[in-house]
Amino acid sequence: MENNIYTSKDFATDQEVRWCPGCGDYSILKQVQSVMPEINVPKEDIVFISGIGCSSRFPYYMNTYGMHSIHGRATAIASGLKASRPDLSVWIITGDGDSLSIGGNHLIHLLRRNFDTNILLFNNQIYGLTKGQYSPTSEQGKKTKSTPMGSIDHPFNPLALCLGADSTFVARTIDRDPKHLREMLKRSNDHNFFVGNLPEL
């Protein structure tokens, strides 16, 4: 197909974007929408699958095919979709609670199977949607609603976890560096896996 028949506006939907003011997710959405015209895939062949959490609202804002599924299972649902429809460009939107806690098992097995999908892991080191409990990437000692005296759990590093599961492409980027973020999205699309490690401050 011809290059750049789309603009980023073609990927916006009529749904009102509902994240908290100042949230880094706005920036990620904008960069993803701006990268999509450059990957040269018809938008009907693109699917965004998310789990549950703030970031998982993402598919509603992308004018492609999409599914806002259940907590932790976006990776498993995307595995079945990609296995049955290898022709599709599949993007998984997940967070640190979604894919490192409740959906940890599916994440490592998706990597092991090396499905050609893109995973955007929005790591804000907190459970935002349920209003502030510590997550598997929260630093030790973090005071949250569920850890008023500081969390006692040791966080793990998503990149190390993914490498341990033999992921073949891993990257970390940040919402406040749009240029780098865009570059990583493109390289992820060219390869088969991507972790966006995006601390939200």
Binding site: V47, R73, I77, G80, H106
Partner: peptide, 12 residues
Amino acid sequence: AAVSASIGAAFG
């Protein structure tokens, strides 16, 4: 994962 993958496949 077994049921979720089947749902993903059905979506496809």
